[in-house]
């Protein structure tokens, strides 16, 4: 049996000394949790910036789209650029439209379906980009406290072994070990709480943006379907 002894009752109880006094496992847990916290906040910063940008783009696009500008013209300006959000949906639908009419559309129903599919694919790709990394936020939020608790349990265990080894139950001897063990739970909570809050907020935001894009896709699909009907009627009238 290995006897674990407390070197001396440390009077220094700063955070740094608590961290340095901790055992290997507890240190590892603490470092991991700090890493998780850094990652959480990185995601938070990233998502905040990205969602803001996406919202601005949506606003701008909708303004242009409903301004009465010709769709052909809009398509020409957008297809040259890297687009995202509604722009990407619009471009994918227009591309499909163009391809079909340039080669001479045979079936209007098939065309409508193809355009819808193209828009669905783009939509799901866009929402996937929006929700990327939200999963890791959820994981950190739910697992962080447990990881911290694990560190605490291990820390308290070793500190009790040390108490048994030193054969002293003086609180001054016992307290630092327990304090350093509790630090692990504190860090775990520190990482988990923002993660949970951020996850809830960002998933709600992503849902809102996605539904807004879906709304646009449906509207655009309706517009295109009207266009198709009109285009199909013109040749018939011409033939009559």
């Amino acid at each position: 049996m290995e006897q674990v002894g407390l070197a001396a009752a440390t009077t220094d109880v700063t955070l740094w000394s608590l961290f340095m006094e901790a055992g290997f496992v507890v240190k590892l847990v603490m470092l991991g949790l700090i890493g998780a916290s850094v990652w959480t906040w990185a995601i938070v910063v990233d998502k905040t910036l990205k969602y803001g940008k996406v919202r601005r783009q949506l606003d701008a696009f909708e303004q242009v789209f409903w301004s009465g500008q010709s769709l052909e013209e809009l398509y020409r300006t957008l297809s040259d650029r890297q687009t995202s959000g509604m722009g990407a949906i619009f471009v994918s639908a227009m591309r499909e439209w163009k391809k079909s009419f340039e080669r001479g559309a045979r079936s209007p129903i098939g065309l409508q379906m193809r355009i819808d599919r193209a828009m669905d694919v783009t939509l799901s790709r866009e929402s996937e980009a929006l929700e990327a990394r939200l999963g890791s936020l959820a994981t950190i939020g739910s697992a962080g406290p447990f990881v911290g608790l694990f560190g605490t349990v291990v820390g308290i265990m070793t500190s009790f072994q040390a108490i048994a080894g030193s054969k002293s139950t003086n609180l001054a001897v016992v307290a630092p070990g327990i304090a350093e063990a509790l630090l692990a739970t504190a860090i775990g909570l520190l990482a988990a709480i923002p993660a949970v809050i951020a996850y809830n907020k960002f998933s709600a935001d992503a849902g809102k943006i996605t539904s807004r894009m879906e709304g646009f896709a449906d509207e655009f699909s309706a517009i295109l379907s009207r266009q198709i009907d009109e285009k199909l009627q013109q040749p018939r009238q011409a033939a009559q």
Partner: peptide
């Protein structure tokens, strides 16, 4: 993502240093 990661890391470093300095040993 990189920028935000760096931002987050810097933020943590700042907070930790502040904590280590000012949260020192409780009275």
């Amino acid at each position: 993502m990189k920028t935000s990661l760096v931002t987050s890391a810097v933020l943590h470093a700042l907070v930790l240093t502040w904590a280590l300095v000012s949260l020192g040993s409780p009275a």
